[in-house]
Write a protein that binds this DNA or RNA. Structure first.
Lengths: 211, 211
DNA sequence: CGTCTCCTTGATTGAAATCAACTTAGGTGG
DNA sequence: CCACCTAAGTTGATTTCAATCAAGGAGACG
């Protein structure tokens, strides 16, 4: 499904016309902090990270976006986050101004926009909780449980991102991510076939840890 | 301004009819996590905190809402956060279902709803950054600089919330909040006339610390 | 085969949490 | 109106968890 709308919505065709497909290769920047926030984008395939870069090289990843997710919602005229491709991606781009004027005429679209922004808000709330009050181990357990929910097989996750991305998403360092994963492995909750291929041997145990 | 819409919007009168005013006294719960998310509320006066309670008594405050802020946006059918009055408050309550059906007919309202949700999203992003990557001192400096921005006098803030609220907002303990404030005082960046009355002697210095 | 990047592991340090008093301020009742 | 009581805030000592510093291993690619 390429459009923000469902396939049955009448504005669908219009949207497709306004939304060119964009292919982005791994680690390429989709948009940067402080450039004009002209586009709202939808992930067709691949994974996108939205992140903020701070002084002295610190980075905080706000979210990983996967197929079906819409990102690029901004309150102001400029992006307050950057967006980058975690893996090769296919995206649909909508011009913000087009979308908003279209939404004025198509109720379904307005609803979808609203819904997507609120869904991002809900994720941000859960993320804040994790960042503010979880231990390193809890953060990793929670992260893996979330990944599992989006994986085709519940008990087997293939990480699209590297350890640095995970660290910057969870507010940790790479070393702590590595160590916490090792702890989960030693506790028989997970198992690696490769660093990016993790078998969740005890998903319930993970969920308990994830608070 | 009582309505979500500006006073000049035609849906204004309708909204007022659907939105009864509610007075809430300090520390009273406005709504609780997991109850049906029936209302979206706007702060007329006072301060509201939206927060999540976790196992073993941990709490994360998502945001403090002040006059003009709208809160209660939820992706699902139930609240994922609780809302409580930090001080005595006056709120306007809108039934979510009313609001959404009204929005279908009044473009201005739909826009306002969208805008408020996105504004909350932007705040959540900034907050995530603070929680994930700021030191205790940076968190406090950033917090005070934000408070200053909403204060009638830039250089004088009156905190509506107590130290525990601040700690749970910044992902710290009360002791660390107290110690960090003491450090800022010793560095001549701030000055107390009482624990809740803080004079920002060097707002620029604070902003530098706030990254 | 060597080099580079990514990941892991070890040793040590450091910042914030925890544990424990103590102080101050505010509210209530004598 | 003052004294007491309680809640809120501060400060100190110690511990702990994660960061930092440092090195080594594994896999990918030319």
């Amino acid at each position: 499904m390429l459009s923000i709308l469902g396939p049955n919505d009448r504005a669908d065709g219009v949207l497709l016309a306004t939304g060119p497909v964009r292919n982005v290769s791994q680690d390429q920047t989709i948009y940067s902090m402080s450039e004009p926030a002209e586009a709202i984008l939808k992930v067709v395939s691949g994974m996108v990270r939205t992140c903020r870069f701070m002084s002295n090289g610190r980075r905080q990843i706000d979210a990983f976006h996967i197929e079906g997710d819409v990102f690029g919602f901004e309150a102001g005229a400029h992006y307050s986050l950057s967006a980058e491709a975690v893996s090769d991606c296919t995206l649909v781009c909508y011009r913000r101004s087009d979308l908003l004027s279209l939404a004025a005429r198509h109720q379904g679209l307005a609803n979808q926009l609203y819904l997507h922004s609120i869904r991002n808000l809900a994720r941000a709330h859960a993320h804040a909780c994790l960042l503010g009050r979880f231990s390193a181990l809890e953060k990793l357990a929670s992260f893996l449980a979330d990944e599992s929910a989006h994986s085709p097989q519940r008990e087997q996750v293939t990480l699209a991102m590297n350890r640095t991305d995970i660290a910057d998403y969870l507010g940790l360092t790479v070393e702590t991510v590595s160590r916490s994963l090792a702890m989960l492995r030693r506790s028989k909750l997970i198992e690696f076939s490769s660093p990016r291929e993790i078998k969740l041997k005890d998903l319930n145990g993970l969920r308990v840890l994830a608070v």
